[in-house]
Design a protein around this nucleic acid. Structure first.
Lengths: 245, 245
DNA sequence: ACACCCCACATTGTCAACAATCCACGACAA
DNA sequence: TTGTCGTGGATTGTTGACAATGTGGGGTGT
């Protein structure tokens, strides 16, 4: 009892569970539901960054009352996805290009640590699962249709497993609860142009190899280089004006 | 307008402002007030970790109603200081010894990055301020009375300035909003025994020297070593059974 | 004596009305 | 025309009552 599983229940909506046929897993409380709805709406860009939104409008949109909604707004503000000013409303946070790059710098360090600890602590079964997952990712990429979307999903699935595999609760919480949503929010904008799927998959494979060999240092190095490459890719996209800020 | 200052207003209660004569700065809203009260209560150990506490009890204690209180609880849960289970109540998070050490591992990386970026981005004025602050810290330490308490305050002041000086919003948010409160919560238990004040002050001085010389790499290295030493100190205290878990 | 089940109670989640605050619009003066 | 001030309206913050759910204690059967 009193486990921390619930803390992670609402930060893993992108994992393909056995039964996701229902419109999202029935959150145990309405505030959780509101939290999930708002978070996904923000991440998917349905709520544009910088846009001011009223509480009643959100209530009508997601069919809830203001009580649970306010609780969800509080959580999202605390998590940095919203900016709130007393008596003035709430607006979606708008991250500048520089701040987005800084996000990748933080990820570089934290995911490097996660990879190192995952190499030391993941079970053999988890590693086998991870390798199998990469196989299915490859199959998805090789299918032409929906390539970009599934590549994204696979990418997040991979990083998610590494984070949880680190057995470092706070690290996983920060990565899965804060950073990934931020990054994801801005990746949705260039989902088609981002693609370097095969290259990324290769890097994933080499990281998993290092983990399978329990070589923490190598896993950390490869992961840091992987994120670093992603960061440079983003910087290039910004320089080319592919992203609007 | 719409700045992020409010986001940081409630995570800097330990900074000695000009006018703190009033019982804490009048938060703009009751939910913020509840958030501050609960956070400081948790950090100071007035609410014991693992203890289950009822909402009504908290309402009576801090003289609020359940609405704002629930919003504050939501924020604290999202920040990892509370564990909440639907219809079952809320209890203060209890961090194991291992998790506390992991916290220091994360700090090591993030504060290292903060120090490097601070060396690149702090203004000359901020650096001069920081040096002056260290002088006053030294004066405090040399006074026998209240040594441990003021050393703690000075330590947090130092790290706070480095974090904000990095000009990395997310990094500062994570350090000031998440990690420091966790660490602080567990340091309150061994406030008298932790002391390695002069050694720590020396390390602070050398870090600031590196920052003043705009040597980011050196600042990062020294900061990582500083946190690493603190971590080893904590590990020793845990091994000696000075901390109760 | 021990384990299991059921129910009343206490506690939490939710709702709708009330009060406090900000902001945009318009009037007025320079 | 432009800048400032004041007010109406809309929006947010807060409150107390109502509904839903988990928990602990008493009872019963083995």
């Amino acid at each position: 009892m009193w486990g921390v599983m619930r803390s992670f229940a609402h930060i893993t909506p992108w994992i393909v569970n056995k039964d996701m046929s229902q419109a999202s897993v029935q959150s145990q409380t309405r505030a959780d539901e509101a939290f999930d709805c708002l978070q996904t709406a923000i991440v998917k860009g349905e709520l544009a960054p910088g846009e001011r939104i009223g509480e009643v409008e959100l209530c009508a949109r997601f069919d809830l009352t203001r009580g649970p909604l306010r609780e969800a707004l509080g959580r999202l503000e605390s998590r940095g996805l919203l900016v709130r000013r007393p008596h003035a409303g709430v607006k979606v946070v708008s991250v500048s290009a520089d701040e987005l790059v800084e996000l990748y710098r933080i990820r570089e360090l934290m995911e490097g640590l996660a990879a190192r600890q995952a190499a030391e602590r993941m079970t053999d079964e988890e590693i086998a699962d991870l390798q199998a997952t990469l196989d299915s990712h490859e199959a998805m990429i090789n299918q032409a249709h929906g390539q970009a979307y599934y590549q994204e999903e696979g990418d997040y699935d991979f990083h998610h497993r590494i984070a949880t595999g680190s057995r470092n609760a706070k690290l996983a919480q920060m990565l899965l609860g804060d950073l990934y949503y931020m990054v994801r929010m801005y990746r949705y904008r260039l989902s088609t142009s981002v693609g370097r799927p095969h290259k990324a998959l290769n890097e994933h494979r080499r990281i998993v190899e290092a983990i399978a060999q329990r070589d923490g240092e190598l896993a950390e190095f490869l992961m840091k280089r992987h994120i670093s490459a992603a960061r440079r890719n983003v910087e290039k996209n910004i320089a080319d004006g592919l992203m609007s800020f």
